[in-house]
Nucleic acid binder design. Sequence first.
DNA 1: GCAATACTTGAACGGTAATTCAAGTATTGC
DNA 2: GCAATACTTGAATTACCGTTCAAGTATTGC
Lengths: 207, 207
Amino acid sequence: MPRTPEFDRQTVILEAQQVFWSRGYGQTSVSDLVAATGLKPGSLYAAFGSKRGVFLEVLDAYNHAFVGRLRALAKQESGALEGLVGILDEIVDDAATGRDRRGCLAVNALLEMSQHDEEIESRLRQHNERVRRAFAEVVKAAQAQGDVDAQRDPADIAAFLVNSIWGLRVMCKSESDRRTLNAIAAGILAGIGNRQRKIRLRVSPAN
Amino acid sequence: MPRTPEFDRQTVILEAQQVFWSRGYGQTSVSDLVAATGLKPGSLYAAFGSKRGVFLEVLDAYNHAFVGRLRALAKQESGALEGLVGILDEIVDDAATGRDRRGCLAVNALLEMSQHDEEIESRLRQHNERVRRAFAEVVKAAQAQGDVDAQRDPADIAAFLVNSIWGLRVMCKSESDRRTLNAIAAGILAGIGNRQRKIRLRVSPAN
DNA sequence: GCAATACTTGAACGGTAATTCAAGTATTGC
DNA sequence: GCAATACTTGAATTACCGTTCAAGTATTGC
């Protein structure tokens, strides 16, 4: 009897994610979402309730993807530190290439909205905690593998890592000099106690 | 002959700064500025041209104040590292008290506007460079005073410091646990090579 | 094919924002 | 005091945005 919906919810969310990520919440109009997803306003509102509803789902999808990646890293039997360095390296590379400068969707949302939208604030706080726990698991694995000082609390190291990455996610908006970015990454590795430099950042061609 | 203007430009800018800092650019309406400054729309537009004009001047004032503070620190004959730790400590304390969670006006502006406003982007890039140079001067002083490893490039350490502080300016939006924040600060100090912990963070009462 | 179902469509609505401008008003030098 | 000056005022203007809804349309089971 009923007609079946003509769109795939997850596809729509990923398309909307691109727009929100590039332009932020406030600068994204419903018209932009309509253009990006192909859904007309009525369908969008039937499916998600509001522009804000779309955004909340986009945020959840974003967090889920990143936490999933970290959990996979923590489960591996070796290379946890290499995995962390890989993530750092990727963020540095993203900043140095500097094509879009979109930064991190969650950081952008936190700064744009947490002040005046309690639901988004608490949602992002939950996301933040999940990310930090996931990082802590990876750090714990790296400690078990003898690559990170086992004396220090993994949660503390994870908090420092998240802080540093968030810094890079801001930095990428105005800095694309690879030498500078590598120096920052080196400082971060020193901060997690990797004094011996067992792991080095991949040195990419000069910027 | 002419009537003299009835307001003090700097006072108006500082009042506007409070509003932009608390609410961000997009969420601040001209009515908010009218309410905060006491100037009516017509006077505001006569004096600053546009809402954006007010914001640019606010941004300049903000940068000028912070850079001035750093330069004063660099000129002192001793205590450069203590000064840096003091700034860190202040930011941590601000985050832990978490009364307003306004973070850093420049970071907020960078994330909100740099993508779609080239003039603001380049202005903030200049500000960023000035801040980093000023930090580098303080680091140089700390090196001369024997408190920071003199082998490392002050500019690199400064970049790492700015990155870490920007991270904290994001972190304060969703984290106010003092233990966690102190752990982050400890990581930052480890990152600038303060292994011996000559300087400790002031330990404030539990959160 | 047909009726039932519910998805799709896009024009219209109400609200709000930034900006302008013509009228009002306070201050100045003489 | 007076005329000249230019600052102040706030209602009006223009534009856009999120949201709704009534009409249209495609799909399904029979």
